[in-house]
């Protein structure tokens, strides 16, 4: 007997199935992302950094020295894992985190004011530049924060904390009528 298993997103019961009214400040939740932990082998930090920089369509998030999250919206977890293994063979270790992490994309004119309610890091664009990423504490929850545009941030959180972070973000964004929904294409 063959079986198919349907994947669930932790926010499945919390976000509407259909995209609703989108406010200027919006929280966009991709339904699925391919995410892989990349850990450079001893002494290979530089070559892995260079290799990741050349990885094309993959977003690279800094998590710690010699450690990154590689994120892709277009690849499957398997293909991302496979491609990285080919690209960085014998220089890094990989752990699939596609099911273990949840991505939130926050955008709009008030994003910095929203994030300042949870994150102590100075997010002035001259200091936390576009393309910067780092693990930070948001309220009580450790996340990976990346600036993807002047007024666009991507938050990656451990799956078990996703609902708690979502609840926190709703409270943080209430002042600006923050809307939320699953990505249309994701």
């Amino acid at each position: 007997m063959s079986r198919t298993y349907i994947s669930r997103h932790p926010l499945d019961d919390l976000l509407p199935l259909e995209p609703g009214i989108r406010a200027v400040d919006h929280l966009d939740v991709p339904r699925s992302s391919a995410i892989v932990s990349v850990m450079a082998m001893d002494g290979e930090e530089a070559s892995v950094t260079a290799g990741l920089a050349a990885s094309g369509d993959v977003s690279i998030r800094f998590t710690g020295p010699g450690e990154w999250l590689a994120v892709s919206q277009s690849e499957t977890p398997e293909s991302l894992h496979r491609n990285l293994s080919l690209l960085l063979a014998e220089t890094a270790y990989f752990v699939d985190q596609s099911d273990g992490r949840v991505v939130f994309r926050l955008s709009g004119p008030n994003v910095r004011r929203i994030l300042a309610k949870g994150i102590a890091t100075d997010l002035h664009p001259a200091i936390f530049e576009v393309g910067t990423s780092s693990n930070v504490l948001c309220g009580h929850i450790s996340i990976n924060l990346a600036r993807t545009g002047e007024n666009e941030f991507e938050l990656i959180v451990m799956r078990s904390f996703a609902i708690a972070l979502f609840d926190d973000l709703k409270v943080m964004g209430r002042e600006f009528d923050l809307s939320a929904g699953f990505s249309v294409r994701g």
Binding site: G64, A120, T121, D122, S134, N135, L137, S142
Partner: peptide
């Protein structure tokens, strides 16, 4: 040294 200025809570 890896992340920059952070609050003690981290």
């Amino acid at each position: 040294p890896h992340c920059g200025v952070r609050p003690k809570e981290e």
